[in-house]
Simulated scan of single mutants.
Amino acid sequence: MPRRILAVCLGNICRSPAAEAVLRALLPGDQIDSAGTSDWHIGDQPHPPMIRAAAARGYDLTQLRARQFVAADFSAFDLILAMDGKNLADIEALRPEGNVTPVHLFTDYAPETGADHVPDPYYTGDYDGALDLIEVAARGLARAAAD
């Protein structure tokens, strides 16, 4: 049965759309989406430098558009992946009472990296570094799904 997985970052223009594209490539039978905890970029394409960095690795982000995470996402998805602790806290603040949908840091699936979050390349400028970590975490999630 296909899983429904949601990747969430702050603006849904860098990390989470990249994670969406990478997860779609690795888990083609699953339903993958992304969202942001803020409303700053609703309807916008991913950030151009992330589009370019992802394209260099074979991922097309151009059809994606930013949307805001909403409480209904807890019911619509089987797993929610936060890119950092602040996003995780913002997601949890919207959790409906009684909902048990798992929410994890994406880096939980990349313990070998020692990373506790995916740094935001919008601020760091390191789009390739963010993609490196996203790919490692996505492969870890794919391995966990296969077990």
Rank of each mutant, 00 (worst) to 15 (best):
22 V>W: 05
38 S>H: 14
47 H>T: 13
43 G>A: 11
15 R>G: 08
16 S>L: 09
41 H>W: 00
18 A>I: 00
42 I>K: 13
25 A>Y: 04
28 P>Y: 02
50 M>W: 02
17 P>E: 10
36 G>P: 05
33 D>G: 06
16 S>H: 07
28 P>W: 01
52 R>H: 11
32 I>D: 07
14 C>S: 06
37 T>G: 13
23 L>W: 03
16 S>M: 10
59 Y>G: 02
28 P>E: 05
34 S>K: 11
29 G>M: 06
57 R>I: 00
56 A>N: 08
16 S>W: 07
55 A>E: 14
25 A>F: 07
24 R>D: 06
52 R>L: 14
35 A>M: 13
16 S>E: 07
18 A>E: 04
51 I>L: 06
50 M>G: 01
33 D>T: 00
51 I>A: 01
23 L>C: 04
16 S>Q: 11
38 S>R: 12
14 C>G: 04
23 L>I: 03
18 A>K: 02
51 I>N: 01
27 L>Y: 03
15 R>Y: 14
28 P>V: 02
51 I>C: 04
29 G>W: 05
53 A>I: 06
31 Q>C: 14
39 D>W: 05
34 S>A: 15
24 R>P: 00
14 C>F: 04
57 R>N: 04
46 P>E: 04
47 H>F: 15
21 A>C: 07
43 G>C: 08
18 A>M: 10
37 T>H: 14
34 S>D: 08
35 A>I: 11
29 G>T: 09
46 P>K: 06
46 P>A: 05
57 R>K: 10
21 A>P: 05
22 V>I: 06
21 A>D: 05
48 P>H: 10
16 S>K: 08
34 S>P: 00
54 A>C: 14
18 A>C: 02
48 P>N: 11
49 P>Y: 05
51 I>D: 00
42 I>C: 13
42 I>N: 12
20 E>Q: 14
35 A>S: 12
43 G>Q: 12
15 R>C: 06
24 R>A: 08
44 D>R: 14
34 S>H: 10
30 D>S: 13
21 A>W: 09
37 T>I: 15
47 H>L: 15
31 Q>D: 13
26 L>W: 05
17 P>R: 06
22 V>Y: 08
33 D>I: 00
14 C>E: 04
21 A>K: 11
16 S>C: 10
48 P>L: 08
55 A>G: 09
42 I>P: 00
53 A>E: 07
36 G>R: 04
51 I>F: 02
31 Q>T: 15
59 Y>P: 00
54 A>T: 01
53 A>Y: 03
30 D>T: 04
42 I>G: 03
40 W>L: 14
49 P>D: 03
37 T>Q: 13
21 A>T: 03
20 E>A: 01
27 L>P: 07
22 V>F: 09
34 S>T: 07
28 P>A: 04
29 G>C: 08
31 Q>Y: 14
38 S>Q: 09
22 V>S: 13
57 R>C: 01
42 I>E: 14
27 L>C: 14
29 G>Y: 02
52 R>M: 13
47 H>A: 14
49 P>R: 05
19 A>T: 12
45 Q>F: 02
54 A>M: 06
31 Q>G: 12
33 D>F: 02
19 A>K: 00
54 A>P: 03
